[in-house]
Design a protein around this nucleic acid. Structure first.
Lengths: 230, 230
DNA sequence: GAATTAATTGAACGTTCGTTTTATTAATTC
DNA sequence: GAATTAATAAAACGAACGTTCAATTAATTC
């Protein structure tokens, strides 16, 4: 036999990508064989090479698409300049929420992007790392802005950015959809933790810390920078 | 040839372990071949099988030793009961510091333990995960104690424990010994971030938040729970 | 409806893999 | 110093790997 009835290049490629993400997440890139992948898609091994010239190029393509999606997602989710959420605290909140939701919706792909960097050639690794740096740069910019304005208390912007990324990406390690916590609850909790991490306490914290006689920061006018206007 | 002059089982085993940790960290477990490992040790492939019956058992042994060391390290570093550092804040500080230092000193082994769980059989995976749960249980206990006493403000102990572990383990991803920050500085910064994360602000934060007229928490006697007595 | 293109099969290539077996030599024991 | 044990070498096993190539059929074009 050769070409099968109803076969379609685009559908096959999409099926390959999906199956590859799942298999690599479960077994690891090196442990997954092209034969296994072909079997999962329901196709002969040789057919894979119509869509991806090598196994490594397949991996790169998956990672690239993931990073592309992540950067695009933040581009759409980021508060518009001049909006009420455009403050550093508002931007940080949006960043964390977008990150959590994006990764929860793509647990397998995130695993692949995080664990399989070793299997890329230097050149392709550099490409992915540059995309990653671009994304993390957005977070650093937010932290820097908030720190300059005095809204955040961050000693080391780069280190804090790494710590936050690590913390909020870690959600995919333990979160299971069928568990006690909903996606909303998880996102909210991570938001709270992040705000505390950057020294931008929320209302509850502040009341508890200030006690009944609290006078606030005093040296800043306007509302609380950590609670954007609605 | 056969047995070589000066050959010694214990030394060879140690050399295999060390070389394996390095190779697996760099290439990944599946990507490392037993031939590569043997070459790195300076021995024939067959010689490896005198010390480890299979490749997987070698991996398991490395991970097991790592977790054993980590748990033992915490056992020695944990503040003695009744000591000044035995408060939840003191224990949390000790936990974070021990974790950071232990992992910084064993970056390769940590990489292996974190990234190669997929390559273990179900049974061996379960074994390692149980050790991990034991270690993380210590952190949860500290968070629980601090929250019950009111020293910490943690909404979800389990989630916060995961977040902290993720954050502080992440240090090995970016830290390079020759970089601008010393191990001490890194440990101190992570300590600060952790304390903020659990709502246990340090002196600087509190003063800034309270302002000049601060009255403290008021409802608690004794010193600040976040600053253990010396 | 013939010609062309897209999609896939089936078989094969050379290589490398984890592992085993047997033989050989160094160190240790008595 | 002979017997025994520990440590390794050398060679080989079958299986699986990523990949290629030629043949074949479905869909599309003209």
């Amino acid at each position: 036999m050769a070409r099968t009835t109803g076969s379609d290049g685009e559908k096959t490629q999409a099926a390959i990508r999906e199956a590859a993400v799942g298999l690599i997440a479960r077994l690891g890139f090196e442990a997954m064989s092209m034969r296994q992948l072909a079997a999962e898609v329901g196709v002969q091994p040789a057919a894979l090479y119509r869509y991806f010239p090598t196994k490594e190029e397949l991996l790169f393509s998956l990672m690239h698409a993931h990073m592309d999606g992540l950067i695009a997602s933040w581009g759409e989710a980021r508060p518009a300049e001049g909006s009420a959420q455009a403050s550093p605290a508002g931007q940080l909140a949006a960043f964390v929420e977008n990150h959590i939701r994006f990764h929860l919706a793509r647990r397998h792909a995130t695993h692949v992007s995080n664990l399989e960097l070793r299997s890329l050639s230097d050149e392709r690794l550099g490409h992915i790392l540059r995309m990653r740096a671009e994304y993390e740069g957005a977070l650093r910019a937010i932290l820097q802005a908030g720190t300059s304005r005095g809204d955040f208390q961050v000693e080391d912007v780069a280190l804090t950015a790494m710590a936050i990324i690590q913390m909020i990406t870690g959600v995919i390690v333990w979160f299971r959809p069928e568990q006690r916590l909903s996606e909303d609850e998880v996102a909210a909790t991570y938001h709270t933790m992040t705000m505390r991490l950057v020294g931008c306490a929320d209302t509850v914290d502040r009341q508890a810390l200030r006690g009944p006689h609290a006078g606030g920061q005093g040296d800043r006018t306007g509302g609380d920078p950590c609670i954007p206007d609605r």
